[in-house]
Write a protein that binds this DNA or RNA. Structure first.
Ligand SMILES: [Zn+2]
Ligand SMILES: [Zn+2]
Ligand SMILES: [Zn+2]
Ligand SMILES: [Zn+2]
Lengths: 137, 137
DNA sequence: ATGCTCCCTGAAGTCGCTACAGGGTCAAGG
DNA sequence: CCTTGACCCTGTAGCGACTTCAGGGAGCAT
């Protein structure tokens, strides 16, 4: 199949597929008479794996490693699990960080009751003391 | 003061300050005899504002707009509030997305009980059907 | 021949920095 | 006078994971 069909079937954009190839994630496919890329079922499976990994938030580097690990099916899966656990921990940390951000921001937003900019609590929470830019007026 | 002191006082790295200047967020400061940047109190206040905004997760574009808005203190603050509310909404959306990701990932991680890669449920959840790369072995 | 959809390459842009490389400035110390 | 060292300068390239654009070629239908 050509790149457009692969894109449609996986939900990965054409340009992104080409970029994956360029950066070594996908092997260079065969070319047809008109120099168009010609993909087979293995390429479809490989790209679907990448897509699913990206949707789960893994980095391309992690996905590369996960794909490499699938090659020796008899080996122990501990490295796979380590990658997944590490990523889960990362996600949990981000949630914590964003949650405290949300608290702070929603306090800010609620503090504003409308009015003049000079009185707005949002800007006053951002400013250190005294307005930030008053060099010349 | 010179750039190093400004960096120390705001917690913003020297290279980052220069980069803010280059990208128009900070005005070009005066230069002393040795061509060193020479900052005043207004620059300190302005950079502190930027830092606080970044810590709250605002984009540099939003911060630029917020700083521009502070110039006419008599205007209505509705645009300020809109920016803050929009950012809060963004943060909340990210939290939701990451939370569903966390659920999925922790299901994945828990599904693995150790063993061979060929059996690992983590990789099987990533693969579509059949292993992703089996072109030649 | 024309139009259309698809495809090609290569370069540059995005965001918010960070990390050099290869110098210049200036005060203190020997 | 000379060196050391902390600080500063410019400019460029790199990060991750793409997206966008310019400028074309392939192949089919009309
Ligand atoms: Zn991760
Ligand atoms: Zn307000
Ligand atoms: Zn935002
Ligand atoms: Zn496992």
């Amino acid at each position: 199949m050509r790149i457009g069909e692969l894109a449609r079937r996986t939900g990965v954009r054409v340009e992104t597929i080409r970029w994956y190839e360029k950066s070594g994630l996908l092997e260079k496919p065969a070319r047809n008479a008109g120099n168009y890329r010609d993909y087979d079922a293995a390429a479809l499976a490989r790209l679907s794996f990448i897509k699913r990994g990206r949707d789960l938030g893994f980095s391309l580097e992690q996905i590369t490693e996960l794909m490499a690990l699938t090659r020796n099916a008899r080996a122990d899966c501990e490295r796979v699990d380590a990658i997944a656990r590490q990523h889960l921990a990362e996600v949990e940390r981000k949630i914590v960080d964003l949650s405290s951000l949300r608290r702070e921001l929603s306090g800010l937003v609620n503090s504003c009751t409308g009015g003049a900019i000079g009185e707005c609590d949002i800007l006053q929470a951002l400013a250190p003391e005294g307005p930030p830019s008053r060099s010349e007026g």
